[in-house]
Amino acid sequence: MKFDLHIHSCLSPCASLEMSPAAIVDAAKAAGMDGIALTDHQSARNAPAIAVCARQAGLGCLFGLEVQTAEEVHTVALFDTVEVALELTDWVYAALPRRKNDPDTFGDQPVVTWDDEIVEMEEKLLAAGCARSIPEVAEFVHARGGLYIAAHVDRPNFSVLGSLGAIPEPFEADTRYFDAIELSRTVHASEWLPKIGDYAVVRSSDAHHLCDVSRVWTEADGTFSIAGLKDIFARKATRLSERITCFSAN
């Protein structure tokens, strides 16, 4: 099966407004995906909408957030259910700056229905980091059965390697904060795997525009669910698509 675990919808201030849940599902299906994950910056408020679209289309879908932590590191948290993703959203929202989003500066943040009606414009400053650290988010996610992935570690900005220089690990040797490490679209996996150690690796599109949805992906034998991915990650049994050299933008 093929899957893409990092996709933004129109709710992300930096994403294109064409990224409606229905359009994302159509694009991922057209790209041959078996499963996707919706991961907007600091929020899962479009998860209820994409749950409907994915179910109608028969596409596997996980629900999560791209949490920008206190360390200003981008991390992907994933769950089987919309409810838990929204629970994490509330916990992240409580740790965001009080300042409201300025759409002219950062972009619009529409919460939409499955058929692309705007419910409201999210006022939280989703472009900002939250005051929750990687260890705190990892604990929250794992306590609720979720998966925690370090996003685009190859990038110099807002990545675990860029901001912290190494993948942080707890003192207790038998636990880890991250269940897998994500590589972005344009890098040669062979250049980065030595810096990642013995973590499972995924490649995800991190699409902010429709034309980028699932242009890269991860492949594995198994079931598209949190339990299925946990098993795949434990076996480090992922295969990455080739990199692409040309993409629209972030």
């Binding site: 930096c14 300025d102 500066t105 950062f106 110099p156 900005n157 807002f158 972030n250």
Partner: peptide, 12 residues
């Protein structure tokens, strides 16, 4: 921090 978001923060 050579990133687009730095501009947004400067504007604010």
């Amino acid at each position: 921090q050579n990133h687009l978001n730095t501009i947004a923060v400067c504007t604010l």
